[in-house]
């Protein structure tokens, strides 16, 4: 029998206060794959991410985590299954980098949050793979936006979950940092065996570095497949129809029309 997907949704309707923004979403995040969630502002990317991460109850349908209903799980158990990086930069005060990354061990430690040797290894490894080991004792509030994003991702990696969900991790970053962040996520998926889902507006990065795309075209039309399929079938173009963006399916690139 096949191992159930780390995350799969069935007839999922997401929204706030019982009002659906997206309907009938079928999503599968296989292990070891990097998936980008793409759609215009306000279409419901964040709502979908929060629902898939268990932070928001679905309006209808279910999210299955390894075959279990995600929203019926206790909070602590859910946090051992899914790690989340929300958008925006938190005010962290006197928190230094290593302390913030250590917070990722929260679901694994006891009442006092004391780190064991294994916890410290997970923290160090997360800092190593995100390239922030040298920032160890720097205050997070003194880090640049790029460094801060890597710290937040390292925290999520230290949580050691099979699933990783991120809301616009490349926002506010310069080009090299955007590439670095997505490569980091790709690495977390491919060598870490995780299912990684993130929302982004960086089409090119999504096309070049992701294994799968989820396109949100309208409240009732979601599409998922490989980047090549998205380009070839014209789905990508359709997702941005009438927005003044011209797609070149042959090269998989786009230009802005004046």
């Amino acid at each position: 029998m096949m191992e159930p997907c780390p995350i799969a949704t069935e007839h999922l309707c997401v929204g706030h206060g019982g009002v659906a923004v997206l309907r009938d979403v079928h999503l599968e995040l296989p292990p070891g794959s990097l998936t980008a969630l793409i759609g215009i502002n306000g279409i419901g990317k964040s709502t979908l991410l929060r629902t898939v991460a268990g932070l928001l109850p679905p309006v209808e349908g279910t999210v299955l985590a390894c075959g279990q209903v995600l929203h019926a799980m206790p909070v602590a158990e859910r946090a051992r299954h899914i790690a989340v990086v929300l958008t925006g930069r938190p005010d962290t005060g006197m928190l230094d980098v290593v302390s913030l990354v250590s917070l990722g061990r929260h679901p694994w430690t006891g009442h006092w949050g004391k780190l064991t040797k294994k916890d410290r290894e997970a923290v160090n490894e997360a800092m190593e793979v995100t390239g922030i080991a040298r920032l160890r004792h720097k205050l997070v509030m003194e880090c640049s936006d790029g460094e801060c994003q890597k710290v937040l991702i390292a925290r999520a990696l230290a949580q050691a979950t099979p699933v990783l969900v991120l809301d616009e991790p490349t926002a506010y970053l310069d080009l090299p940092n955007r590439a670095a962040v997505v490569r980091m996520l790709r690495n977390a998926a491919h060598s870490g065996g995780r299912s990684v889902l993130f929302s982004t507006h960086d089409l090119q990065l999504a096309l070049d570095l992701c294994d799968r795309l989820v396109l949100l075209r309208s409240a009732v039309a979601t599409w998922q497949g490989t980047p090549a399929e998205a380009v070839a079938s014209g789905e990508l173009e359709r997702a941005f129809q009438g927005s003044g963006v011209q797609f070149f399916p042959g090269q998989g690139t786009h230009r802005f029309t004046p």
């Binding site: 989340v84 929260h106 009442h111 949050g113």
Partner: peptide, 23 residues
């Protein structure tokens, strides 16, 4: 004092704390 551990997680915001397994 007993709330120290979850309060640490709350430093990152309430929603992020929930995502880290804090009620």
């Amino acid at each position: 004092i007993g709330l120290a551990k979850p309060l640490n997680a709350m430093l990152l915001g309430e929603e992020q704390a929930r995502a880290m397994g804090v009620d």
